[in-house]
């Protein structure tokens, strides 16, 4: 079995988000980068499925050399090898195209991603890769069982879940519940340094979208504090002043 796991290099969840150049670029100064938390779940699931010599896990990242430490972190968690497609990811369409082009050159059973990246929150890459490869994609899964040829997945829907059966190659985007995130141990960290990280060049594709401006949410006014003993008055404020109930 071979599983490809797509990982994105994103700002740590505690990052205060600011912009530079007239709010056209994300301010990377002082930002710590991590493996996108949802991608970590996908990776943990892939490692779990391949445990005991049942298969290998390859992580795939689209990025320039600045993402190498993030890729090494994924190798430390337990991936067997890594491929970096050498380009600054323009948007999800570009990223998905690159991953699909690479996938066409290698054998695999499934491709796992996170449900979305926590920076641009596109939630697009998994389904786009599926479409570029013309194979099924199942978005936002909470459970995945694989018997070597077919998979049973649980997909999140509003107010519930759907159980989906799929045979043959597929792509799935992973959400909480699919696996417990694995933490790298010392042996993993040591061996990550010597695991293969292959760099390949990106393929050309037309641009379809670009971010032209960032905005930060407007600041809220000061909080109106209501004494605890008078909590009941909140209800009338929500009704008459805020007009939300």
């Amino acid at each position: 079995m071979k599983i490809l796991v797509c990982i994105s290099h994103v700002p740590d969840t505690t990052t205060k988000i600011t912009f530079t150049n007239d709010n056209t670029q994300f301010n990377t100064a002082g930002v710590q980068y991590i493996v996108n938390p949802y991608d970590e779940l996908a990776l943990s699931k892939a490692i779990e499925l391949c445990e005991g010599g049942k298969g290998t896990v390859t992580v795939v990242n689209v990025g320039d050399s600045s993402t190498d430490p993030t890729i090494r972190k994924a190798l430390a968690i337990g991936a067997d090898d890594a491929v970096r497609i050498n380009a600054v990811p323009r948007d999800a369409y570009f990223t998905a195209f690159q991953i699909a082009e690479y996938a066409k050159t290698t054998d695999f059973d499934m491709i796992l991603t996170g449900r979305e990246s926590i920076d641009y929150n596109g939630a697009q890459v998994a389904a786009m890769v599926g479409e570029f490869l013309d194979i099924p994609s199942i978005s936002i899964i909470k459970k995945l069982d694989f018997d070597g040829s077919s998979a049973v997945l649980e997909r999140e829907i509003e107010g519930g879940k759907e159980v989906v059966n799929v045979s043959g190659k597929f792509v799935a985007s992973c959400a909480e519940g699919v696996a417990e995130p694995k933490i790298p141990n010392m042996r993993g960290i040591m061996s990550a340094r010597s695991k293969p990280l292959v760099v390949i060049e990106a393929a050309p594709i037309d641009e379809v979208a670009k971010i032209v401006q960032f905005e930060t949410p407007p600041a809220r006014g000061a909080v109106k504090l209501i004494p605890a003993e008078d909590a009941a008055s909140l209800i009338s404020l929500l009704h008459t002043e805020a007009k939300v109930i």
Partner: peptide, 23 residues
Amino acid sequence: NSFSGKGLAPRIAVKLKAGLVDG
């Protein structure tokens, strides 16, 4: 941009070579 929409819009975009704004 529902759970189903998130699984659908990217595939439509690729089929039509279209840019996609989600959310």
